[in-house]
């Protein structure tokens, strides 16, 4: 019985992903360049936030330095395309691997820490990278790297959008499988109670380290996609404020859900776009609306969405009685 119920619940979730995929694929045919562009950005930022949520919501850590891996992926892509003659497919593989390498180096220290220390050291190491990017000439200083040429086939907005959807969905499926695997379960158990995990014979330190590298690899993919989308990269990608954006997107969307970061990215970017067009004091209003969202939806948009059916049911019962 249980097995059947689990299967059904699992299948229903996959059906939602297929529906989302199909709807997203249709967007370019509506002819709206504005929405196609906006959705590309949402998908990329959502992917970066999801890599953060792998450690935040599913690992119980507070990674405040993922801009470092976003920027590593971005700069690696830009430099590989501009400075080498590598085939494009090789760039697609090497760029995220570079981000993972940076993650493997920084993770040695960061993953030994917990809570505030974890957050502060990850933010600090991100700022070290930011300084390096601005000072080392090959990274182009404060002006960054612009005019990154991408293959003909991706040069249209629609093509880039479709390419982004495909890559993002591949990574989403990979992440989903990962979270259901023993690795993913131990990762979540570490969030609940790291000491108990140690006492049942799993190496917590090694586990957190590997998870950190996987997460930085995925964040590197997001950085890479962003460069292909905008064809330029700037030092601000490595600034800790960018890391803060990722964390905020996760909290806004709901850290305890798989798809939360995607929803959070959509909410934040759409909010940003609309408020900017209304007033020049947009940051003020953006801040206030985010405060309100967090106060009234402490478990994020997806958290509220999860409770909604039961709330409607209880309201319905009240009305009937």
């Amino acid at each position: 019985m249980d097995k059947i119920r689990n299967l059904q619940a699992g299948a229903r979730e996959w059906v939602w992903y297929v529906i989302a995929f199909v709807i997203l694929m249709i967007v370019p045919f509506s002819g709206s360049i504005f929405w196609t562009n906006l959705l590309t950005e949402i998908l990329i930022m959502g992917l970066a936030a999801m890599s953060v949520n792998l450690l935040l919501g599913f690992g119980g850590s507070l990674p405040f330095g993922h801009a470092a891996f976003f920027a590593s992926g971005a700069y690696a892509t830009a430099l590989l395309i501009k400075e080498t003659n590598l085939p494009f497919v090789a760039v697609l593989i090497i760029a995220p691997v570079m981000a993972a390498v940076v993650g493997a180096i920084l993770g040695i220290i960061i993953t030994r820490l917990y809570e505030f220390y974890y957050a502060i050291v990850s933010a600090a190491s991100c700022m070290v990278l930011w300084t390096l990017i601005r000072k080392v000439p090959i990274f182009g200083g404060d002006t960054g790297i612009t005019g990154v040429e991408i293959p003909e086939i991706l040069s249209s907005i629609d093509a880039m959008y479709i390419f982004t959807i495909i890559i993002v969905f591949i990574v989403l499926i990979f992440t989903k499988i990962l979270l259901n695997s023993p690795f993913g379960w131990i990762q979540q158990a570490i969030r609940e109670n790291p000491n108990r995990v140690t006492c049942t014979g799993s190496n917590v330190l090694r586990h957190r380290y590997i998870a950190f590298i996987i997460s930085s690899f995925i964040c590197g993919i997001a950085g890479m996609l962003f460069v292909l989308h905008t064809q330029s990269t700037f030092p601000s990608y490595a600034h800790w404020v960018k890391s803060g954006d990722f964390v905020m997107i996760c909290i806004l969307g709901g850290v305890n859900t798989f798809i939360g970061p995607m929803i959070g990215a959509a909410a934040l970017i759409i909010l940003q776009t609309y408020i900017t067009s209304l007033t020049e004091h947009w940051l003020l209003f953006l801040g206030i609306s985010i405060c309100l969202l967090v106060i009234f939806m402490p478990s994020g948009i997806m958290g509220l969405a999860g409770h909604l059916p039961s709330k409607i049911q209880s309201l319905y019962r009240k009305i009937r009685s």
Partner: peptide, 11 residues
């Protein structure tokens, strides 16, 4: 999973 040393099994 800890006893069977499967913590790193991913797929």
């Amino acid at each position: 999973l800890g006893y069977k040393k499967l913590a790193m099994k991913m797929f």
